[in-house]
Amino acid sequence: MKLPTALVQLLKRLPETPPTLGIVGVLNLVRQQLWPEEDFAWWEGRHVRMAVTDWDWGITLSYQNGRFVCGDTPADVTLSASLADYWQIARRQEDPDTLFFQRRLSMTGDTELGLTLKNLMDATDFAPLLRFFPKPLREAWEK
């Protein structure tokens, strides 16, 4: 997925909190739909950072008291990939293991937490999230 350079430059200048709040809100809305059997006890009180390598930017999430929240401390684990690679994972066009072995997805910190998250990402059909995105992104998803 290639975004216009001007948009990328703007996003790079924004603080991480507003987009993280948006993602947290959407995840809380669709949690039961995406992961009806998952209790997330393995994530409780721990912080995960999803770094976007081509933007030098990312979000930090936590799971506390049954809800996703913005991470407010250093991450226990950081997953790093390009935006295009995250997009491919979400669309199930590429699995995280393949990207990991191609060194396009990396993990630092708590490996057990990272592997659990990587496996969750691999098993998740993110298509239900499309309803939260504008039409151009929904159309891009289908390509």
Rank of each mutant, 00 (worst) to 15 (best):
M1P: 11
M1N: 06
K2P: 01
K2I: 06
P4M: 05
A6K: 11
V8T: 13
Q9I: 10
L10A: 05
L11G: 09
R13T: 07
R13F: 13
P15H: 07
T17K: 09
T17D: 05
T17N: 09
T17H: 10
T17I: 15
P18V: 09
P18C: 07
T20M: 12
G22D: 09
I23L: 15
I23D: 06
G25D: 12
G25N: 11
V26G: 00
L29W: 01
L29I: 04
V30P: 13
Q33V: 14
Q33D: 11
W35R: 03
P36E: 07
P36S: 09
E37C: 02
E38W: 01
D39E: 06
D39G: 09
F40L: 15
W42T: 11
W43N: 03
W43I: 02
E44G: 08
E44N: 15
E44A: 10
G45E: 05
R46G: 06
H47L: 01
H47A: 05
V48D: 02
R49A: 07
M50N: 07
M50V: 11
M50W: 14
T53V: 15
W55K: 01
D56E: 12
D56R: 10
D56Y: 10
W57P: 10
I59W: 06
I59L: 15
T60R: 09
L61I: 15
S62D: 05
Y63C: 02
Q64F: 07
N65H: 08
F68D: 13
F68T: 00
C70R: 12
G71L: 02
T73G: 03
P74R: 06
A75M: 05
D76A: 04
V77A: 10
T78A: 05
T78G: 08
S80D: 12
S82D: 14
L83W: 14
L83C: 02
D85R: 03
D85K: 07
W87I: 04
I89E: 01
I89N: 00
R92G: 04
Q93P: 00
E94K: 08
E94W: 01
E94V: 14
P96A: 01
P96S: 11
T98V: 11
L99M: 04
Q102P: 02
R103Q: 15
R104T: 13
M107A: 04
M107S: 12
T108F: 01
T108A: 14
G109Y: 05
D110Q: 03
L115N: 11
L115W: 10
L115Q: 10
L117Y: 06
L120I: 01
L120M: 13
M121V: 13
M121Q: 03
D122V: 05
D122E: 12
D125H: 04
F126T: 00
F126D: 00
A127R: 06
P128T: 04
L129T: 12
L129I: 11
L130F: 09
L130Y: 02
R131P: 08
F132P: 09
F133S: 12
F133T: 04
P134C: 14
P134F: 12
P134D: 11
R138V: 15
A140N: 01
W141M: 12
E142D: 13
E142S: 14
K143R: 14
